[in-house]
Simulated scan of single mutants.
Amino acid sequence: MPELPEVEVVRRGLAPRTVGRRIQDLEVLDARIIRRQVGGEDRLRAALVGSTLTAVARRGKFLWWRLADPDGADTGEALMGHLGMSGQLRLATADGIAVTPGADSEGPASDPLRHRRLSLHLEDGTRVDLIDQRLFGGLWTSPLVPAADGALAGVGSPDALLPEGASHIARDLLDPAADLPSIARALRARRAAIKTLLLNQEIVSGIGNIYADEALWEARTRFDTPGAALSQRRALAILRAAGEVMERALEVGGTSFDALYVNVDGRSGYFARSLSAYGRTGEPCPRCGGPIRREVHMNRSSHFCPRCQRGTAPSAPDAPAISPRPR
């Protein structure tokens, strides 16, 4: 599943090639991809065709475009999207050939036409394709509401307005407005395991399984350490480690293990070769040389070094890490 760095790579790829362009047409090839759209395809088409994309922003794993009407006035709603488990937003030219990236990156590049579910046709001939093999992602419109703290709504946002559909999501660790001491106190107020808390998008958004394992390895903390057992200093160290790991992943295009995550040009990131714990079961810990171990906790695999990641006895979780809403 794409996590924060991968979604930010996509946002950065979309911004220069879509912002300022008018939507000329909407093509829906599979209605399941717009299942969250109130009013269905007719409502989506009415909101988009003729509108101009004025900004592309992100909070956690949510992306959204701001929309302006033909007179240039903000429409009061956003086109928001979530990539789910396997979603891709890909750019193509009018003849369907994928846009060539400026520099090669490693990993597989998937067929840009496979599992295409929806396309936005822009006035300059660019086509934005939503490709989703498993159909857990989607695009839909959502009215804008003020951010609770009054700060810019997310990375790339022009103001404090965000889509109502993302208003339940906490700020992420790459957001300049994120209050790390407050997030640390929220972690320490719970008895749940620290990894469960890092995955709770209403505490801190954007972190998934990969970067939680890597952050906890960096901070020398076991995945099942209760949040309430952490000092404020340790909780802050974990959050800073998570932010630093995701910044490093962002620099190399994110983490790709297969063709389910690629950037807007169809290329994969290569942070996988820099991972210290995730997916390294049985390999030597880069820090102490002990074997990396994998354990299942709360139905999720956790990768850690039992020699240099220490913690106290785990406690029963006090809140679920996942809700039915997209995270």
Rank of each mutant, 00 (worst) to 15 (best):
P163V: 01
A277E: 06
V38P: 06
L4V: 10
E41T: 04
I238N: 08
A147K: 12
V296S: 14
E295W: 01
D175K: 07
A242W: 07
Y270D: 15
R234A: 09
W140V: 04
P2I: 01
P143W: 07
R307C: 00
R300K: 14
I23D: 10
K61E: 09
A235D: 07
A31D: 12
R310E: 10
R234N: 05
D213I: 03
L260E: 15
H121S: 13
F223C: 04
E202Y: 00
M298D: 15
R35D: 05
A219D: 13
A178G: 09
N200G: 05
E244D: 15
P226E: 05
T93Y: 01
M80P: 00
V145C: 07
P16W: 06
R12S: 07
A219W: 12
G269F: 02
Q37R: 05
R114H: 05
H297G: 00
Y261H: 14
A229E: 15
A237Q: 11
A103W: 11
I33L: 10
P163F: 02
A316L: 14
M1C: 11
A272T: 11
A68C: 10
C305Y: 06
L79C: 03
L162D: 03
T18Q: 12
T100S: 13
R293A: 12
I169A: 06
S301L: 09
L29W: 06
I207L: 15
A321N: 01
F62A: 15
G282T: 07
H297V: 10
P317L: 02
A192T: 06
A151Y: 04
S167C: 11
E295S: 06
D172R: 08
E244L: 06
G311M: 11
G138K: 01
A160D: 15
L113N: 13
A148F: 00
P2F: 03
L120P: 08
L216R: 09
R310Q: 14
T126K: 00
L91P: 09
P181R: 09
E123F: 01
Y270R: 15
G266K: 08
Q201F: 02
D172C: 02
G84R: 13
Y211G: 07
I194R: 14
